[in-house]
Simulated assay, not measured.
Amino acid sequence: MKQFGYKQSNSDHTLFLKRVKDRITCIIIYVDDMIITGNDEEEIADLKLFREFEKDLGNLKYFLGIEVLRSQQGIFIHQRKYILDLLAETGMLDCKPAETPIVANHGLQIIEGEKPADKEQYQKMVGKLIYLSHTRPDIAYAVGVVSRFMHLPQVQHMTAVMRILRYLKGTHSIGIYFDKNAHPDLIAYTDADWAGDRDGRKSTSGYFTLVGGNLVTWRSKKQKVVALSSAEAEFRGIAKGIAEILWIWKLMNELG
């Protein structure tokens, strides 16, 4: 890519950028798959002639399990096929849907003497749910909770994973819509619970960010240290949100 005049982004090492006056071409690379976009139509046309690249598959419709739908108003991304394949693989295709991905005040923890679950199956299912949360912020918290027990899954934890699958059964067509808005405003929201993890009494931070009114990133993650107060837990959550804002701001500057 550097040989053809592209510069690797400092914000995302899979992103390569090329500027010609006020025009820009952006390429995201994952092994031998790439997404090409930008406003330099001449450069994009030349790219297709590079003998290093096998073929042009046209407008982006499917990428690493993520489906892309376009309209004049915006872009919709989802993982419907990925979800249906997951439900079929786990025998949950005909299950009764659940209204929420996790019960309120679930109190999940490791209980001494509790019956263990199949560790290999549990890790495989949770791993697939983690990838699915790339387009499903509504399951991010629930997936974050069940991923805490990968080293020692028990029956209660497997039941929680099955509830997420039952929730997905009723919401398999949900995804994220990116609208064409004129403003590039960057907004973030953060939150944290206090000592919500029953095993280690650690808190959980959560944030999501919007660019131009569109949801672009989100995360729910257990904090690394025990917060001594709810205020400390909130401030740690805010710090995570601010770090995300700074990263997006830097990326937007690189994109111009």
Rank of each mutant, 00 (worst) to 15 (best):
M1I: 09
M1S: 11
K2E: 07
K7S: 13
Q8E: 13
H13W: 01
T14A: 14
L17D: 04
V20T: 10
D22A: 13
R23Q: 05
T25A: 07
T25D: 01
C26P: 01
C26L: 05
I29R: 02
I29L: 04
D32A: 01
M34W: 00
M34R: 02
I36V: 14
T37C: 03
N39F: 02
E42I: 13
I44G: 12
A45G: 06
F50S: 12
R51N: 12
F53R: 14
E54W: 01
D56E: 12
G58T: 07
K61L: 02
F63A: 09
I66A: 07
L69N: 15
R70I: 04
R70Q: 11
Q73M: 07
Q73D: 11
Q73P: 07
F76I: 11
I77E: 05
H78T: 11
Q79M: 10
Q79E: 08
R80S: 14
Y82Q: 11
L84C: 01
D85R: 14
L87E: 11
L87S: 10
A88M: 10
T90W: 02
T90E: 04
G91V: 03
L93D: 11
D94M: 04
C95Y: 00
K96Q: 10
K96A: 06
P97G: 09
A98M: 09
E99Y: 00
P101W: 01
H106Y: 01
G107L: 02
Q109Y: 00
I110V: 14
E112N: 10
G113H: 09
A117Y: 02
K119A: 05
Q121M: 08
Q123L: 03
K124H: 08
K124C: 10
M125A: 10
K128Q: 11
I130Y: 03
S133W: 02
H134S: 12
T135P: 00
P137Y: 00
I139C: 07
I139K: 12
V143I: 14
G144W: 01
S147G: 13
L152H: 09
M158Q: 13
T159S: 11
A160D: 08
V161M: 13
I164Q: 14
I164E: 13
Y167K: 15
K169H: 05
G170Q: 04
I174H: 07
D179E: 15
K180Q: 13
K180P: 09
N181Y: 08
N181P: 09
N181L: 13
N181T: 14
H183Q: 12
L186M: 12
L186D: 08
A188Q: 04
T190G: 11
T190S: 15
T190I: 07
D191F: 09
D191W: 09
A192Y: 10
A195N: 07
G196S: 14
D199L: 04
K202N: 08
T204R: 07
S205V: 12
S205Y: 07
G206W: 04
F208S: 07
F208C: 15
L210D: 00
V211D: 06
W218L: 06
R219T: 06
Q223I: 05
V225K: 01
A227P: 07
L228C: 06
S230E: 08
S230F: 01
A231R: 01
A233V: 05
A233Y: 01
E234D: 03
E234A: 04
R236L: 08
G237V: 07
I238W: 04
I238A: 15
I238Q: 12
G241E: 09
A243W: 03
E244A: 09
W247R: 11
W249K: 15
K250Y: 03
L251I: 09
E254F: 05
G256E: 13
